[in-house]
Structures are given as structure tokens and as C-alpha cells.
Design a protein around this nucleic acid. Structure first.
Lengths: 117, 117
DNA sequence: CTTGACTTTTACCATCTAGTTATATAACCT
DNA sequence: AGGTTATATAACTAGATGGTAAAAGTCAAG
């Protein structure tokens, strides 16, 4: 996987286990054991997923006694959101231009078929 | 990588080469040779990236003579967009609840400090 | 039907990913 | 200190990914 922030964020989201963790964290912080219990995976596997999410800026960890619960970081979604917004804008523009172009083409085709129109 | 559509879409976007291809395609269709020329990679590598994008529903290929240009498929972004919209909504709700909670806590703390308030 | 342009497929390699079990560290509690 | 809980690290495996070079397929045109 590439190492730029946007690729890290997209890559972190490209795994159902990690998305499930994020959705669980939307209800509040959770420790590794709790997340592992809600999953079919083992605890070290969850720890690894949390590291991926942390490197992507999507969660943070805080030490709280012997626990080290994970918490959502809303700002991690910002690069993804920005890219998606811009892409949607550009793509929509392109698609609209294409539609106009096609409409003009079919009009001229009709004109050639019926020169008296 | 997981094989569900959402993971495929996120996974496809988690690579700068593929995002660059998508941005190039926003300006119009392009063949493999053209995309390879605009990249440092070889042409077979581009073909592989195009397959990933196609499986993610982000592009389509059409046969046009001996060319087989790729074209954007706007609808491939829909699952990503939906997930992101819902996540943002839930996360924001959570963060707002948290802020309200913290505000209430500091108020009661102040109240305890100043019982006459 | 042969040639040439565009593209895909194959075979191979190196690296990354996602999981496991086993072990180590850290913090809390007698 | 010793025991328990929570978490992290180490070492390993299997499979996926991303790249290459070289061979093969597809189609338009002479």
C-alpha cells in the first residue's frame, strides 16, 4: 500500500473488520478485548487493525489505567471526504458535458437525415 | 482484500496510480497505451490497475476497433458515498453527544465547586 | 492472409497483508 | 512479591498485490 495519507485512509476503510470497528466506536470508546470479543478474530489481530486505523488518522488511543481504549477521530475522514467531493464534482461536470455533446450529435444526425428540417 | 463491493471500491481508491487514472479519465476516455505513456509504469501494469478499477465498478471498458478505452462509471462511487455519508452522520451525532456530555460535566463540576451558584 | 498496432495473458518474482500461536510488557490488586 | 487483566510484540504461514518481460490474442488495413 502506498504511504500517502489519502491512500492510508482509503486502505484502512477497505476492510470490513476495520469498518465494523469504526462503527462500533461510533457508540463510544472501546478496548481491544471488547472489540475482540465482538469479533471472530483473536486479540492480536484486533491490535493490528487498530494500528492500521491509527496510522490512517481514523482513531486515537489513550492510556486509561491498564486499558488503552480506542476512540474515533473524525478528522481522519477529511482527506477522503475532500477527494470524494472533488471527484464527484469533476465527474459530474464531465458527464454533463458528455450528455450535451451526445444531444448535439443526435440533433445533427437528425438534421442530416432530414435536410429540410 | 475482502470481496464485498464496498471493500473493492475503497481498495481500488487506495492507490495513487489508480486515482491518477480516474482523474485522467475525468477528462474523457483513454486507452491503455495513453495511460501507460502518462505513467512510469509499463502497459501491462496499467491493464492490471484497470481491471481492479473495473471490478470495483469505477470504470467500464468498451471495444472500439482495436482500442479498448476505459471510461468512468460514476455509479461506482455510490457505495463509498453512502457509507461516508452515514458514517459522518453517526460520528457527528456521537461527537455532539460527547460535547454535550462534557459541557454538562464541567457545569456540574463548577456547581460542586460553587454550591451557591 | 500477412502485417502491424493495441491489448491481454502468462510466468515469475518480491513485497505486503491478515491471520495464527506463543510470549512479553504494563498496570492494577492483594 | 505474586496473580490477574489488558495489551503489545515476535515469529511464522498462506494468500494477495504490484511489478516485470515475454508470448499470445484481436482487429483494421494493405
Amino acid at each position: 500500500m502506498a504511504t500517502d495519507p489519502l491512500s492510508r485512509a482509503f486502505g484502512a476503510l477497505a476492510d470490513p473488520t476495520r469498518r465494523t470497528i469504526l462503527e462500533r466506536l461510533a457508540a463510544g470508546e472501546a478496548g481491544v478485548m471488547e472489540l475482540a470479543a465482538a469479533s471472530t478474530l483473536t486479540q492480536p489481530a484486533i491490535t493490528k487493525h487498530l494500528k492500521v486505523l491509527e496510522r490512517a488518522g481514523l482513531i486515537g488511543r489513550e492510556r486509561n489505567g491498564q486499558r488503552r481504549p480506542a476512540r474515533l477521530h473524525l478528522e481522519g475522514l477529511l482527506p477522503v471526504d475532500d477527494w470524494l467531493r472533488q471527484a464527484r464534482a469533476e465527474w459530474s461536470a464531465r458527464f454533463e458535458r458528455l450528455e450535451v455533446h451526445l444531444a448535439a450529435q443526435s440533433e445533427s444526425a437528425i438534421t442530416e437525415e432530414n435536410p429540410d428540417a
